[in-house]
Amino acid sequence: MIRDITVGQYYRTESFVHRLDPRVKLLGTFLYIISLFVFSSVPGFIVSGALLVVTIWASKVPLKFILRGLKPILLLLSVTVLFNLFLIKGEPVVQFWRFTITREGIQSAVFLVIRIVMLIVGSSMMTFTTTPNQLTDGIESLLKPFRIVKLPAHEIAMMMSIALRFIPILLEETDKIMKAQSARGADFESGNIFHRAKGMLPILVPLFVAAFRRANDLAMAMEARCYRGGEGRTRMKPLKYQTQDAAAFGVLTLYVAVHITCKVLW
């Protein structure tokens, strides 16, 4: 179950999307998320879905792996669907006992599910295909213009990349702790909700202790190697746009253009 969480993980393989400049992927994802909200109509979703399908295909990340990342949000999804189905007023379609399902309810539920799924899959496509290091470099480079307003671009990027880097480590750690406590007869599955919440304590305490220790060690290791922020720091692999990035920008422009055309025509 713990291993099912794939959001934020990097999927190592060789593909067109993997080779793209991280800035392109960041901007693309940003644009894509905005488009999901601005163009939320049937044709809009078709266009967004098409881009997603093309990206998935070009990234060579197996569909099974991507879908696994959706499992943890199933509960959230079903709750939103239920709320939308029953609480939105409008033209009734089905009626039983005290509940009414309306046309508007169904529409809004379906739209919401599509939007959330595309949102999650779309943004995880970025992390599947970009290493945390590239991601930081990309974020930092994109935030640079905001330095005029005293935005600590480097620090923000560093913090984000560390957080991302630690997700798999913490998952692994949780796995180990759960095993060590199960070996001592701990039971995480049975009992009522209070019982289970209390049962989490033997996992959470060592996990937090380990996380703080790790943070401390990391800070120390960075100090020891004279880390002092981004001022005057050069890179081993400076970011440079390539032809393929131009192609990707082309695709993105086309994507926005098609969206706007659809919106105007419908």
């Binding site: 060590a180 406590q181 070996a183 304590l201 305490v205 060592p206 380990a210």
Partner: peptide, 10 residues
């Protein structure tokens, strides 16, 4: 286990 710090919590 190999590393005891994974199980102490009380």
């Amino acid at each position: 286990f190999q590393y005891p710090e994974y199980q102490l919590f009380e």
